[in-house]
């Protein structure tokens, strides 16, 4: 088991390197000159060249790459063009907020999606199953900006039980536990909106896996042993049905991360999505590259987690 995890970790090293090369390449290919925005129009060509030299922009590409990567591993993503803010500081201000939102949506997707799928499978072709099928179709089909607005209208404007946006009640200045519940209060609507599509697909996937597993020979064996239905369903069927579900753990991370861009905009959630959209509008390549790199690394981590979980639930993978 440990050997397997170590092997998977080693295998992801070249992927990480690949990601950084790609990020760097895209940055280099993007049009425009980093100096163009800052220089005094009256500067001489020689001085311009001199400052290019000083900034290392005339170095061979691989030298530039190694300099850049050297900074990146130390957490330095450079400075923004306008205002000269430290990019890593901007990101660190936002990243935790996005992680809170994405992680909540992630947990919600599986904590709700898996049981719903199991229930639908166990009660196959019942009215409950049909209703759940209908709801998940709606869940997959409805665009999140529309669902988000609907939810805001209903729960924030009409019922007034949840705030319509933001992450905390700044004026209240809560601390300690009250601060925590305040954030939770703000988190519920965006987390539901962000996870809706995922809940729907996780539950569909769980249902179909569960139905496939229930047709397996070993389920018939379990029945022939006179085991109780609960044991057959949960010990024998559910655990096998969970194996493929684990693979979408990893897949759902990039899905939720990109979904967060939209959800954060709708709910005014101060996360990376907001930062990213603003960066794209302002052509802040440094921020975009940093976000790409972080997102790609998270995707990689997600896949790694999936693979490890896969081995945890399926003994056939371990050796």
């Amino acid at each position: 088991m440990l050997k397997y995890i170590a092997k998977r970790l080693v295998m992801s090293i070249p992927v990480i390197i690949g990601i950084t090369i790609l990020s760097f390449g895209i940055m280099k290919l993007s049009p425009g000159d980093p100096l163009a925005n800052f220089v005094n129009p009256s500067i001489s060509m020689e001085d311009l060249e001199a400052s290019r030299d000083a900034l290392g922009l005339n170095d061979p590409l691989h030298v530039q790459y190694f300099k850049w990567i050297g900074e990146v591993v130390r957490g330095n993503f450079g400075y923004t063009y306008s205002g000269n803010h430290q990019i890593s500081a901007l990101i660190m201000e936002r990243l935790p907020n996005t992680i809170i939102l994405t992680l909540s949506a992630f947990v919600l997707s599986f904590v709700v999606g898996i049981p719903v799928g199991v229930i639908a499978a166990v009660k196959k072709n019942s009215r409950l199953d049909y209703s759940l099928t209908f709801l998940s179709l709606v869940g997959v089909a409805i665009p999140s900006f529309f669902f988000g607005l609907l939810v805001i209208y209903l729960f924030a404007l009409v019922l007034g039980i949840f705030p319509s946006g933001g992450m905390e009640n700044i004026r209240a200045g809560y601390t300690g536990f009250a601060y925590f519940t305040d954030i939770l209060h703000h988190l519920i609507l965006p987390a539901i909106v962000l996870s809706l599509g995922n809940i729907a697909s996780v539950s569909r996937f769980t249902r179909s896996n569960m139905l496939d597993v229930l047709k397996e020979d070993y389920i018939r064996t379990a029945r022939a042993k006179g085991l109780r239905n609960k044991v057959i369903l949960y010990k024998h069927a559910f655990r096998n049905a969970l194996i493929p579900v684990v693979t979408i753990f990893g897949l759902s991370i990039p899905f939720l991360f990109s979904g967060a861009y939209i959800t954060e905009s709708i709910f005014n959630w101060p996360g990376m999505g907001q930062l990213g959209i603003k960066a794209i509008q302002d052509r802040e390549y440094g921020i975009i590259m940093a976000l790409n790199l972080i997102t790609a690394t998270l995707v990689l981590l997600g896949n790694l987690t999936s693979d490890i979980l896969y081995a945890v639930v399926d003994p056939r993978i371990r050796n």
Partner: peptide, 8 residues
């Protein structure tokens, strides 16, 4: 080959 539960 298929009559035993693979994960138990």
């Amino acid at each position: 080959m298929t009559a035993l539960n693979p994960i138990l």
